[in-house]
Nucleic acid binder design. Structure first.
Lengths: 166, 166
DNA sequence: TATTGTTATACTCTATAACTATA
DNA sequence: TATAGTTATAGAGTATAACAATA
């Protein structure tokens, strides 16, 4: 348990982080905004998957995922083909062009970090990675409690638009 | 100097951080989006200042700052009055209502963090803060080198829209 | 002529809600 | 009736460029 001052300091860092994020975004290839890069990165890392799985990994609503995926597919970087097990689903897969694009992105971003973090030790980079991963986990875990206590049990965590309750 | 794999891992964490940022944003009071909260937080922390200074602290273009500030001023949370030293400038200052709003924001955000990070040690929170601060510093320091080498010297770092070169 | 701040325009990312086609 | 995915719409953040007032 940390003190209020520490939390406020942390929040300030969260806010300032936007500048870093934007600078990273600026070096992406034209026609490949951040959302597209994120889609391809996750497909490259986790392999073929369905829309719903991708939305979960991106941690955004499926409607958002759908738009990003459409953009990437329009450019021929991924293929979408029907899931034989469920005709409502689509399986996403990187094309060779997608892999090439992904390599280009990885090359640019790692090079930028190598420049910017040239005076960081291996261990420091690792620490930041681990702490940010844990931060995200801490937010994922208790998905709502602060707003609406555990309630009953069941589902939760849907990546889905609320759906009408009529 | 870290390895390519480490940089890629770090980039993945950067990308995933958006989910944390959005959850923080969801608990802000209505009529007070993130940009407004950032403006008031910086004014509360650094005291009265000019637009240009605020834009620098926010690390966004002054046109963006102008919009955020206008929103906050419309709600009576800050006052803008002319700088006696330079009639082009305006000095920004939190009003009593602004201070109250700021307290409310700080209360909500620190409470959320206290919930989410309840199992983090004081030291871990401090480490994350320090590493993120250093990250931002690392990006601020060499402002361009990766894109366009140090070049001559002079200005740089303007927070300003390019300006016509006709 | 250069600088401070404002405004107009455009782009990206996001969520909500409604709709389709399957389960 | 419920779920996978799409699309339409709206809100927030940002940058670029052009403009007014003042240095």
């Amino acid at each position: 348990m940390a003190g209020k001052a520490q939390y406020e300091e942390l929040i300030r860092q969260f806010s300032a982080f936007g500048a870093v994020k934007r600078e990273m975004g600026r070096l992406l290839p034209a026609d490949c905004p951040g959302g597209s890069a994120a889609v391809m990165t996750l497909l490259g890392r986790h392999g073929d998957m369905r829309m719903s799985k991708l939305a979960e990994l991106l941690a955004v609503d499926m409607s958002v995922t759908s738009r990003h995926v459409a953009h990437v597919a329009d450019r021929g970087w991924i293929e979408r083909f029907p899931d034989p097990a469920d005709k409502r689903s689509r399986i996403l897969r990187l094309t060779p062009e997608g892999h090439a694009q992904l390599d280009d992105i990885a090359e640019r971003t790692t090079q930028l970090l190598a420049h910017r973090l040239s005076d960081w030790s291996d261990d420091e980079v690792g620490q930041l990675s681990r702490l940010m991963a844990r931060l995200r986990a801490s937010f994922d875990d208790c998905r709502a409690p602060a707003v609406r206590p555990p309630a009953l049990s069941g589902d939760e965590q849907s990546t889905r638009t609320p759906a009408i309750t009529t």
